[in-house]
Structure formats: structure tokens, C-alpha cells
Amino acid sequence: MARSNLIPRARQNPLSRGSGALRRSPAPHLRAEASTRSIMSDVLIALSPMLIVSVFFYGFRTLALTLTSVASCIAFEWLFRRAVKKPATVGDLSAVVTGVLLAYNLPASVPYWIPVVGAAFAILIVKQLYGGIGKNFLNPALAGKAFLLVCFPDTMQTWTRPFERLPVLGTFEAEAAANPLEALKNGLIPDDSALELLLGRHAGALGETCALLLLFGGLYLILRRVIRARIPLVYLGTVAVVTLLFPLGGARPLEWMTSQLLSGSLVLAAFFMATDYTTSPVTPLGQTVYAVGCGLVTVFLRYFGGWTESVCFAILIMNSCAWLVDRIRLPQPRGGARNGR
């Protein structure tokens, strides 16, 4: 055989054929460092400053609620994967992100069983029954919030005033405060100034109020290339344009637009939930259509819907369209003379 003569025989040479030292795998042989886990870690880093502010506003109860929500999400995911004998996926940290986002959408006054119920719906029904990470067609945290809002409307809409810190344990008389969205619903500019809305000194869910920190978090994600600016900017831009053009009840358009943008969970949702990979389109065109849709439905539901906050419903509706939107085939920009043929 000619082959044996090509190189001198060397029994221990790791480069000789049959030594088993060399791995053969399809190209490419280098991979980028980003992994699902590193992406989820970045999202958690971007979300974490808001948690500190919520403790400052509402006391350690918000931390306890967030931990309850995260722990429930991890537990439900782990138990389900184990029950159906599939590989465990809690290591990718996506359940932790769902847990944090679900908690951020709750008022600080809710009882502790609320995040547990929400997590069960989000993880078991919305995420795992459809096949786990990457397969769900609705954002689990938003679906969990929508489920809780529909089933427990009073609990989910009892707002407390910032700086009236709530006890971690035991019962308390929550003094109801007015969410700025309620004023907007009636065509009035809320009492809170734009600065108060930006800094978060107004009633709202525990992780949605401080728009400034959420914007910084979003900026961090964009700089880290975890998300692209397209979806949040187009979403917020659409809401801004529509509210500027059509203010309700004769409010001054600019003031009306600012209040609309900074109230409720719009900023949180635009950067952290509308951008959810699994439930948003992957093509640039699809993402633009999706984000415009989110904006239009949000304003429509805020003006004419039955709930004060409708961001979650708007995004869930557009989530359902994401795969369809991806398959819009407008004339392809890449159809060169040789390739198009």
C-alpha cells in the first residue's frame, strides 16, 4: 500500500490516521462566544438596576416577590423536563428571565401565590407544552401576566404609592394609588409630571415604573448586541406618532405623548419583551411590521379597550403573527444577475 509510505510510521503520533486524536466535524471550525446562556445573563444584568429601585420604592417585598417568581419558574421548568424525560434546560437561564419579567409586571401589593400561579401558566402551559425554549409562540412572562390580569383583575390592579414600603410578611392595608394610565384612559393628563414618570415616582407594577433605568438597560442590550434597536425604536416611535397626532380629550399633544410613552409597562415591554427572540420575527422587514403592529394595537387598546394597561395584550397579539410576518416575501434585495437566474 502506498499510503503507509507517505509518512514514516509513528505509533504514538496523534496526527496519524486512526490515532483517534483528531475530531472531524463540519465547517466552520470556529464559533462565536455568545451562547443562549450568555445572552440570558446579559438580559438579567440589564434588568437588575430596576430591582434595586423597586426595593427603594416599595421595600423588600418586591425582592421577595421577584425571588418567588424566579424560583417558581425554575422549579416548574425543571419538574416538567424531568417528568417528560427531556434534557434539563434550566441552565440556559431563560426561565430566570421569564421569572424576573413576570415579577416586574406585578403590583408590589400582590400576595405571594400570584407569581406562583403566573409562573405555572407561563412555564408549564405557554413554554413547555409547546416544546420549551424557542418553540413557544407567546412570550411566557406576558402570557402569564395576561392570565393573571384576566383571572384576578382586582388584585392585579391594586396600586400602591411609592415610598410607602410594604411589609415582606403579614397583612397590610394597601392604600390605593392612582396609576397614571387611569387618567390617560379618561383623556386626562396624569398628575405625575414627566420627570416623575421618567424616574418612576408614580404608581405602577414593581418593575415598570423607572423608565430611565429601563432605557439604560435597553441601551446596554443594544451595545452588547443582544438586541437590535429596530423593534423598540419602531414600537415606541409608532406609539409616539399616533398619540401625538390623535390626543384624547383635547390634551396638549406633546404632553399627552410623553405621558403615554412613560406610563405603564410600555418602556419595559418595548426593550425587554417585544424583543423576545422566540416570539418576534427574524427578518428586518418582519421586525419592522411587527413593531409597527405592536404600537398600533397598544394605542388602539389604550384608547378603546376595557383594561387600563394593554401593552401585554398588544404584544401577545403580535407574537401570534410573528411567524406569519416572517414569511412576507416582498421582492428580495439579493437577486443578482448570476444568483437570481
Binding site: L6, P14, L15, L22, R24, A27, H29, L30
Partner: peptide
């Protein structure tokens, strides 16, 4: 070699072929 090899590539690291040994011309 200075370390234990895991892959022997012919061509670039992105499109090259992973070989099972160095006895190729």
C-alpha cells in the same frame, strides 16, 4: 506540535476540511 491536537484543518478555519490525519498531500 506544542500541545495536544484536537483538529487538523486544511484551508481556512471557517470553510476548511477537518482531516483525520496528516498523511495527505
Amino acid at each position: 506540535l506544542s500541545r495536544d491536537p484536537a483538529m487538523l484543518l486544511f484551508g481556512g478555519a471557517l470553510t476548511g476540511a477537518a482531516l483525520d490525519g496528516a498523511d495527505y498531500p
